[in-house]
Simulated scan of single mutants.
Amino acid sequence: MPMKKQGARAKHLGIPLSTLSNYWTGRRVPSAADLGAIHDAVRRSAPTVPDQLDHLERLRKCAARRNTRTVSPQESSGIRAAERISNTSSAQYASSGTVPAQRPAHDRHSGEEGKVGETVRALITARSAGDRRGVIGIAWSASKALTHEDLCAAASDLYTNGHSALGEALLLGGRERGHEDTMRLAITLIRAGLTAQAELVLRAALPRGGGEQP
């Protein structure tokens, strides 16, 4: 699709961002009808794309059969947590861009701590289950649902407790961040004493090839 941001793709396809995220990371498999609707919408946005619906339907059936396997309690817990994080993103940041009404300070603080802890636990659970796609999906969802301060707190928790790979995955989960968003996250990390992590976020945002922007 011509649009680069996942949110824009979801809006064009007419499906929730959390649903597209789940399809993208393999946590869910679309129905035949949903796949057909997505395929048609993509072809309308990019007319040169060949008709591949039959091939995609075969892949969808294979994925559906694979997803009928028994899921361990650890994986199930991680999937539910990822979906809660993703759904929080869709509910809080609607396409209108309006900011939700402010809650009392003590409720807001409790909710923020809950989201941070849930993100950390979900990442560790997915990693323990060997679910690499789950780790990527949780990090992507968290980058949309959490504030810069929440991301910083979650990353600090992971790095402090020896989960540096998960901390890196979390910070790089929002590769689609704009310039201003990237700078704000980097500043938040620096203020928290996570200078190396701020450099990681800034390096990831640099144009590939190392050339200077005109």
Results as ranks from 00 to 15, higher is better:
143 S>A: 12
59 L>S: 13
20 L>W: 04
171 L>G: 00
82 A>Q: 06
195 T>W: 07
29 V>G: 04
64 A>D: 14
45 S>Q: 15
163 H>M: 00
193 G>W: 09
86 S>W: 04
17 L>S: 06
187 I>Y: 11
209 G>S: 08
144 K>A: 03
138 I>W: 00
1 M>R: 05
115 K>L: 14
43 R>D: 07
47 P>L: 14
62 C>A: 13
206 L>N: 06
154 A>F: 00
50 P>G: 09
175 R>Q: 11
98 T>V: 14
168 E>M: 06
119 T>V: 11
195 T>N: 05
175 R>T: 06
32 A>Q: 10
35 L>D: 08
125 T>P: 01
40 D>T: 15
145 A>S: 07
124 I>K: 01
2 P>Y: 09
169 A>H: 02
167 G>I: 01
109 H>A: 11
12 H>M: 15
43 R>Y: 15
170 L>D: 00
97 G>D: 10
171 L>T: 01
52 Q>N: 12
123 L>A: 01
83 E>V: 06
154 A>V: 00
166 L>W: 00
44 R>L: 11
131 D>T: 04
114 G>L: 09
101 A>E: 13
173 G>Q: 02
206 L>T: 11
107 D>S: 13
165 A>S: 13
156 S>Q: 08
202 L>F: 05
111 G>F: 06
196 A>L: 11
140 W>H: 10
71 V>Y: 03
116 V>T: 06
36 G>W: 08
188 T>S: 07
130 G>H: 11
57 E>C: 06
15 I>N: 02
109 H>W: 05
22 N>D: 15
97 G>H: 08
157 D>E: 09
61 K>A: 13
39 H>W: 11
67 N>M: 13
87 N>V: 07
36 G>M: 05
159 Y>G: 01
34 D>Y: 04
174 G>E: 03
4 K>P: 09
143 S>P: 03
86 S>M: 11
72 S>W: 12
76 S>Q: 13
191 R>V: 05
71 V>E: 10
162 G>M: 02
135 V>Q: 00
71 V>K: 04
50 P>K: 08
189 L>A: 02
113 E>L: 12
138 I>H: 00
44 R>C: 09
146 L>P: 00
189 L>M: 10
154 A>R: 00
198 A>T: 09
128 S>H: 07
51 D>A: 13
180 E>K: 11
132 R>S: 14
214 P>Q: 11
83 E>H: 07
177 R>G: 03
1 M>A: 09
10 A>G: 04
201 V>E: 02
85 I>N: 00
126 A>E: 03
45 S>L: 15
14 G>A: 08
192 A>G: 03
111 G>P: 06
77 S>A: 10
210 G>N: 05
57 E>V: 10
59 L>M: 15
59 L>G: 11
19 T>R: 13
81 A>D: 05
73 P>R: 04
2 P>N: 14
166 L>V: 01
31 S>C: 05
6 Q>R: 13
116 V>W: 01
74 Q>H: 07
107 D>G: 04
129 A>E: 15
210 G>I: 05
205 A>R: 04
135 V>P: 01
63 A>C: 08
